[in-house]
């Protein structure tokens, strides 16, 4: 089990000792219990406190969601602030903005859409759509020459 590849392989194909992708029939057979903390069990005290917020009655507490929401708001303010000083970022501006957007995206999907607390299958379904979309459209933009030198000069 120590080898992560072997673990991923077992998780995918030999789940619960049955052959291949047996999807569990009951909640108790799920690999991740519904109230597992989003940050794992270890971590500094702040994370432990956040973990406890997600252990409210049977769903995370309103306080937890409010913290996440305010965090997202702050990130948006930071984005706009970065935008105002975009000249000092130079070529890194686009990268930084995309990473910030991706981070916000993941946070909303993981916590607001509670995929982190939900069945893994739902994450798989959504990720397959999202990843295929990103992959094919990035390839399309490359093939269309969006990243070729003459385009960048024109911009």
């Amino acid at each position: 089990m120590a080898n992560p590849i072997a673990r991923a392989w077992r998780k995918l194909f030999y789940h619960e000792g049955d052959r291949y992708f047996l999807l569990p029939r009951t909640d108790s057979a799920l690999p991740n219990p519904p109230n597992e903390g989003p940050f794992g069990d270890a971590g500094p005290p702040v994370l432990a406190w956040l973990n406890r917020l997600t252990y409210g009655d049977r769903v995370p507490t309103p306080l937890f969601y409010t913290i996440i929401g305010i965090g997202l708001g702050v990130l948006t303010v930071i984005e706009v602030w970065f935008f105002t000083m975009r000249d000092s970022f130079g070529a890194f501006f686009v990268t930084v903005m995309l990473l910030l957007a991706l981070f916000k995206f993941v946070v909303v999907v993981a916590f607001f859409m509670h995929l982190r607390f939900d069945k893994n299958l739902l994450s798989l379904v959504f990720a397959s759509g999202f990843i295929i979309a990103i992959a094919i459209f990035v390839i399309m933009l490359v093939v269309q020459g969006q990243f070729s030198p003459d385009k960048l000069v024109a911009a």
């Binding site: 999807l23 569990p24 029939r25 009951t26 909640d27 799920l30 069945k119 299958l121 739902l122 379904v125 959504f126 397959s128 759509g129 999202f130 979309a133």
Partner: peptide, 18 residues
């Protein structure tokens, strides 16, 4: 899967909407 039909449908729809 332990997921209700409607919720699974909605997630497939969201993947498609991506």
């Amino acid at each position: 899967t332990g997921i209700s039909n409607r919720k699974l449908l909605l997630w497939v729809f969201l993947a498609s909407d991506c």
